[in-house]
Structure formats: structure tokens, C-alpha cells
Design a protein around this nucleic acid. Structure first.
Lengths: 113, 113
DNA sequence: AAGCGATATGTATATTTGGAAATATCGCTT
DNA sequence: AAGCGATATTTCCAAATATACATATCGCTT
């Protein structure tokens, strides 16, 4: 048998460049848990810079911000999702689930890989 | 209005690395039309090397080849899809359509971008 | 057997990406 | 009001990627 690991994933493109996909979804989830971009990036083994650029890109290219960032303060700073960010993340996960179910029902394109 | 171009796309991962997505789908379609990797790559503004590496990767990592390549001969060489390659491409396009319809039915996650 | 057209492969260069480290920020503590 | 701590933000340089270009290969045609 092939024993190959197969996955179907989706992402959203905005003006012909990637805007939202599995990586950003995971990052946002970890920001919810940890309350900072720094901790979230460490938790997923990503460099802080890359994580910060993702957050920055989400906020800049969307008409509504995904994440509110605060620097300084008692704990040095913080990050939390906006209502819009949480809503978007939830809907993306729902879509992801639907796609997974489509891909596994009946005979499909992965059967012979 | 936002006037932003929005798309939702999917790709297939095999053993944690990308295997098939929109780029390779388009390349295969152009190979069907033109009958060579060279012309197909030019038609989509991609370097020949990159296109060749895509075809090579598809053939190597799949148990069944996607493309049959011939070098030399009357026209210097040629490329054509296998039955498997055509079948896979067709099913991928069907999946793409289903995902698109899911993402656009009713209120969805793209509404506020 | 020489030439042709396209594949197949390698090399050098430009471009993009990525990480490490330095810097700026700000409420709290003292 | 000066220092601290944890984070956000920027700078700089290494490393991975991609592109352009050059070369080798092959089988048919003539």
C-alpha cells in the first residue's frame, strides 16, 4: 500500500496574492490562547518576524482589522483578536470542514495517489 | 465599494508538501492544448525550468504518471497527458467548482473583505 | 551523417524570503 | 522620574528560490 499522507486545503486570495490559509488560521488560534504574537509564534515554531508580518498583512489588506496589537504596558504588550477576526476564523474553519467532507465522500480524486 | 478581486482555491498535499494546485492544473491544461511543455510554459508566462520541474515532480511522486514526455523525433519532442492525468485534472476542477459554490452560498466568509 | 526542433540538465545571477539581533514602546513598580 | 519587563517594530545580513542563460541530448528528416 501507498501509506501516503494526503490532505486537501484551501486558501483565500485577495488581488491575486495569498491572504488567508491554514498557517494564518493556526496563528490566530494561538494568539487567542496566548494573548501575544510572540508566544503564539513560539508555540507554532515560527519566527516572530514572520508571525508579525502575517498579522500586519491581515490588518493592512482587510477593511476591518483582525488583531489589535498593544505595545508597552504592564506585560510589555499584547495581542487579541477583534470580533471580526474571530468571526472570520470561525467561518474559515467551517469551510475547511465542508471541504474535508467533500473530499472523502465516495470515489474521489485522491483514490489513486 | 471595495473592488477587490477575491478567490478561493484549493491544493492537495502529499506527505506534507504541496503536490497539486491551481498552477499545475493550468499547466496541464496548456500541455493538452499545445502538446509540449515548452509552449505551455510560454503560454502561461512561466519559465521552462519551473514547468519542467512541476511535470517531473508530478510524475515522480505519483504512482501513475501524469504526462508522457518524448524527446527528439519529428517535432523535436512532445508532451501529452496520460489517461490518469486527464482524469485527475477533471476531478480537481470539479472539486474546485464545488468549493467555489460552497463559499458563495448564502452569507459567507468573503462578504466583508 | 548533418541539421533541426524540442526536451533535458546545469550554471550563474538576480530576487525573494527568513531569521537573528538591535531598537522602540509603555504601564507598572520602586 | 528612573528603571524594569515583556512585547511590538525595524534593521541587517544569510540563505533559500526563482529567473535567465548556456549546454547537452535525442530521434526524426533529408
Amino acid at each position: 500500500m501507498s501509506q501516503k499522507k494526503l490532505r486537501i486545503r484551501c486558501w483565500i486570495e485577495l488581488d491575486d496574492s495569498k491572504f488567508f490559509g491554514p498557517g494564518r488560521a493556526e496563528l490566530l488560534e494561538l494568539i487567542v490562547v496566548h494573548g501575544s504574537v510572540s508566544k503564539a509564534s513560539k508555540a507554532m515554531g515560527m519566527s516572530y518576524k514572520k508571525a508579525w508580518e502575517m498579522v500586519n498583512d491581515l490588518n493592512n489588506r482587510s477593511p476591518e482589522a483582525f488583531v489589535v496589537l498593544q505595545k508597552g504596558g504592564q506585560k510589555g504588550g499584547s495581542a487579541m483578536l477583534t470580533d471580526f477576526g474571530r468571526m472570520f476564523l470561525k467561518k474559515y474553519r467551517e469551510l475547511d470542514e465542508k471541504i474535508k467532507s467533500i473530499a472523502t465522500e465516495g470515489e474521489h480524486l485522491l483514490d489513486r495517489l
